[in-house]
Design a protein around this nucleic acid. Structure first.
Length: 420
DNA sequence: TCTGGGGTCCTAGGACCC
DNA sequence: TCTGGGGTCCTAGGACCC
């Protein structure tokens, strides 16, 4: 038996935990730069505010209905997520943390328990320990557990828990769910399937498997089997090493001069290097991209990307920043208004397995020691307390974050940093 | 004026090997 | 007139997830 535990309106729920006056009110959380709506309370959903809607399009609606608006506070949400996951892990060792607000649990090792009772117990404990409301769906495959979770969320009468534990319930559940709401069926496939009169999850399970495989690859076939009750996707117990790491941002205001973009790229590159070190990985490939604002049809558009193969795989900020700046200079063109830029590293391997080069003239031990010391200091005194000069003083490219909530759960250093 | 960020997997096709 | 068979690796593009 698989269970999917999913936090309700997660970011909004995090804000509510520390600000109970928000209860019963429409609340939304915005993406970086206060761009789009990424989390909504039930009251906000009832007002018709859509997921992903640009904030500027709903200004009137927000004002008229007194909607509480927050910039996203990922430090807070990350910390709350950890609390939820730690509590979930006390119920079974078989847990896969699937995203910031979701986890799959496998309950097969627990003998002689009533799954439904157990799920309610989990739900109540999470609420009591963390203040976060969750929904739980149970079924014999992960994809069906997702369906069960969907039903638990949509129907208040189930009190946040639903189980598919019979053939009748499986068919009933699949008939009630739209094809677009199935895990693994996105926008393109649901549109495509609707052309073949496939409207519900049930319709999808009735298609010939060969046809599904031909049109939707083995991935689609797996989804179909899982919906039929045949498990194809097991729990992932260990977090696999990342194959690519990316840091990118949109700029609050468009930027055209090279100096400012250099500072941004330096910041993104050193952030990628830091993430690599945290994973104990090194990267051999580096990509830098820049682009103008696609939404501004009135302005001239330009987008470019440059990939560089590093001579020796590395996670040194010094090396990665300098190659990133080199790549940037090769694609930067003056005269455009740039809106977004980023750095991606890939070709990743463990930092214990570096293929060195005969002609390498870098003292890698020295770099490693320096990076270790830098990380230690920054972990203690706050991000970028010590940084490469190329990053500048970081004032020129501030994100728009007008409605950020306090860092309720983390170290005082973070709070001080924000006030500064 | 204002439109997020960070990932994964699969397939087809081309280049290459013996 | 006729021109093999069996592989690997890499990349771009397209789908998906939160």
């Amino acid at each position: 038996m698989y269970a999917l535990a999913d936090c309700n309106n997660f970011y909004v729920s995090c804000e509510k935990v520390f600000n109970p006056s928000l209860n019963g009110k429409p609340v939304i959380v915005l993406s970086n730069n206060d761009g789009c709506v990424v989390s909504r309370s039930n009251e906000a959903k009832a007002l018709g505010i859509k997921m992903g809607e640009p904030a500027f399009k709903i200004v009137d609606l927000v004002e008229k209905n007194n909607v509480a608006v927050f910039s996203s506070n990922y430090v807070l949400y990350g910390d709350m997520s950890q609390r939820v996951m730690n509590t979930l892990a006390t119920f079974t060792p078989d847990i896969e943390i699937y995203s910031i607000d979701e986890a799959f649990l496998k309950l097969h090792t627990l003998k002689n328990i009533n799954f439904l009772d157990y799920a309610y117990k989990i739900r109540n404990t999470i609420k009591r320990y963390t203040g976060i409301p969750i929904s739980i769906g149970l079924a014999m495959t992960k994809t069906l557990a997702k369906v069960a979770n969907h039903i638990a969320k949509k129907n208040p009468k189930y009190n946040g828990v639903y189980i598919i534990d019979s053939e009748e319930k499986r068919i009933e559940a699949l008939k009630s769910i739209e094809i677009a709401d199935i895990w693994g069926i996105g926008r393109q496939y649901s549109r495509f399937l609707e052309r073949y009169k496939v409207k519900t999850g049930y319709d999808f399970t009735m298609l010939p498997p060969n046809w599904v495989k031909q049109k939707m690859t083995v991935v689609g076939l797996r989804t179909q089997k899982e919906l039929s009750g045949i498990p194809c996707i097991d729990l992932e117990y260990e977090v696999p090493r990342k194959k690519a790491i990316c840091t990118s941002r949109s700029f609050a205001n468009m930027v055209s001069d090279l100096n400012t973009i250099e500072e941004a790229i330096s910041y993104f590159a050193s952030s990628c290097a830091y993430k690599l070190r945290k994973e104990e990985s090194v990267a051999q490939l580096l990509m830098v991209f820049i682009r103008t604002n696609f939404f501004r049809k009135d302005l001239e558009q330009y987008a470019s990307v440059r990939t560089i193969t590093l001579p020796v795989p590395t996670n040194s900020s010094i090396e990665i920043v300098s190659y990133a700046l080199y790549a940037l200079k090769s694609i930067y063109k003056p005269g455009y208004e740039y809106k977004k830029a980023g750095v991606i590293v890939s070709g990743i391997s463990p930092d214990t397995q570096v293929q060195t080069s005969l002609f390498d003239d870098i003292d890698r031990n020295k770099h490693n020691n320096l990076m270790k010391t830098m990380d230690m200091i920054n972990n203690k005194y706050g991000k970028n307390t010590i940084r490469l000069a190329a990053l500048g003083c970081g004032r020129r490219l501030k994100m728009r974050q007008e409605k950020i909530s306090p860092f309720y759960t983390t170290r005082w250093e973070d709070i001080i940093t924000v006030k500064v």
